[in-house]
Design a protein around this nucleic acid. Structure first.
Lengths: 218, 218, 218, 218
DNA sequence: CATGAATGAGGTTTCATTCAT
DNA sequence: GATGAATGAAACCTCATTCAT
């Protein structure tokens, strides 16, 4: 009898279990190379069961992405709620968070990598991801830059129009890891720090002319 | 029957034609989604003919990559042969060349994008590409940085250990274009210029301490 | 649509059905010339179904071989369990059993023939077959010879070192049937009997010197 | 100019060169596994050239067989021309010749093995081979047996009706070598000698009843 | 005669998806 | 709800054969 109860409880958790399994397998092998059989096996169900909860492999992937990226979105929102202290510190925190997230959460990182690399096949997925994750992150980045300019810390620079390029180092890390894995290991944290170092020096105000430029970002 | 009359029309042209067709189809659909039939059709030959010249789909792709990336490699080699003038100018030229290449040659850009995005499935391809193209490019980038440091133009910075991150903006462009195509257009040239602007300011020597650091890059 | 109604009719039956079909088609056309389509058609399933149960054409063939040869192996094991009576009778029984098996079970015979004739392309199959079927059969043959020597019925002869040559007549039958089928029919049973007749006379002890030789088989 | 002469001479020898190459490749890989490309390469011509001289792969194989087996046929004919000495010696010579032929001429042996193993796909080849090679060989074997009986050396035995079974050891050698190659090496000469030993004892006359049987071979 | 580029039918294998139970 | 057997549409690749030159 106890078994039955457990089974029922498990049934209610099936979708979550499948999503969890999908997360792991997708992030390990990518979308195309992942077989539904693998996911089913890892979830302890059969292939058919997946179709009870998800319409197709693509829909399952989309749900996986959503499940995974929501927390990142939350973090981003929180980060910008109470801006305080030097802008460069916020910038650093932002990039290091993304970098650390990559190192610590290999599965989450895997999903992001799939979006970056296989996303072109799923415009819908990408666009949703943009709206919910990347967009806000870019907005946050833009806000940080503007915050720095406003408090007289950063010079006004054209890069403000391209906030995504402030995240280019993180994107590069994802790509590099995906391409070379252990074959050409990358010291992510130091690389990101080195990039931040350049950004910091590249944005800080040092001359009068920088100050003057402030009023007219290109 | 008329078709068959020209069967042997051009012997030396076939590989080039196939390569050309492959370039187009690959860069449009990516490696996995490309069917040899598509390439054959576009090249005006049959599937079997492809195997006369290329051992496998993967080899064909590799040849396509090589054909496409060789010129870039050549350019890189040339660029560094006679370093002269301000290092920042060389850096700008290097990045803008890569960016322009992307804009002008949408198919070549497609190939690079495939390497970045589908490369993880083909370690052999990626490694060959690294040795022949990316590696030298990174070396060139590192040399430019060192050249700038040597002539007292750049400060010694940790980024010298991660030359690939100087190309992060270009990589980001590739990824962005791949992901969003026309849906979220990117002003590539201005974005690259904005990044160069940050790099330039971020690397230039301004204080005595920068000068002192010069002798000890981390 | 009616067809589809029975889709899942027999789950445990499928492998057997496929194996049965494979047995028939393989033994008719040989390994190479057999198409999986043929087997699928005869089994009343689609090609894909075969791969639900068997990993590859080769594995399917191996399974077929095993299914077919296991009984022969069993017979051999049983035959030697309780040696009794004249050795020549055991030898006769052994060879006639193999011959009868060939005549009665044309499909099983076909499989053996494939091993003999196409086996060189599948060392793994052949070696497994050796270990499980041929090896034991040769051992049995060797044991019979030794049994005959021990009970003073057979002379010790060099052929004891080559037990497989005691089965040469059976092998020849397989080859002959495979080569000539009905075009040059062979009276298998009488041919085997004739061979046994030679073997019997060739092994029996008649002179004192044979007796003496007994202690030193070459 | 000299070149031209040579080339012309070579041209006249093309068919022979192709046959020679075919012999080598066929005997190495068997019929099915041999590609015309391989033969063409080894012969130093192109695939198309083969079709100038031979209508198809099958025809080429048939020609190869003919070229190879003719000498064996000649030997057999010679062997029986002047029967003299003990029949058992002739028998021994006959079998040892076949065995030695197998060991010495790996290519010829290869062809024979192909006939034995892949022949069932080419009834025409097999039948021609029977008429020209195997048939005469069997006739010779039968003649030897009869010669032995006639001179009071061999008993009249049923095996006379199945002369091919006197060659079973040789056939077995071919099959064994084909199946196991170096994995389970076979001491051919000693094995054949051991078989001859059994045959000799199995056929010789020792009792009065053997003598009586002489007049009525079954 | 000789070439060798081109063919194209045919093979095995994969896997997302369906559906009767 | 869950199953898992079955599907079938492709995909890549091979290679004997053809034919214009």
């Amino acid at each position: 009898m106890i078994e039955k109860v457990e089974r029922r409880r498990r049934k209610a958790e099936r979708p979550r279990e499948i999503l969890q399994a999908a997360l792991e397998v997708f992030s390990e092998h990518g979308f195309t190379a992942t077989r539904l059989d693998d996911i089913a096996n890892r979830a302890g169900v059969t292939k058919g069961t997946i179709y009870v909860y998800f319409e197709s492999k693509e829909e399952l992937f989309l749900a996986t992405v959503k499940e995974q990226t929501e927390p990142v979105f939350q973090h981003l929102a929180a980060l910008l709620e109470h801006p305080e202290g030097p802008a460069i510190e916020m910038l650093r925190r932002h990039l290091l968070f993304a970098a650390k997230h990559m190192i610590d959460d290999s599965r989450g990182c895997g999903i992001t990598r799939i979006i970056l690399t296989e996303g072109h096949r799923f415009p819908a997925v990408v666009d949703r991801w943009y709206v919910e994750v990347l967009g806000p992150a870019l907005k946050a980045m833009g806000d940080i830059l503007q915050y720095g300019v406003d408090r007289g810390e950063f010079r006004a620079a054209a890069i403000q129009n391209f906030p995504q390029f402030m995240m280019a180092p993180v994107v590069l890390c994802h790509i590099w890891q995906g391409l070379f894995e252990e074959r050409r290991p990358l010291d992510i944290m130091n690389a990101i720090e080195a990039s931040i170092d350049v950004f910091a020096k590249g944005l800080e105000i040092r001359t009068a002319s920088d100050q003057i430029d402030k009023s007219s970002p290109s």
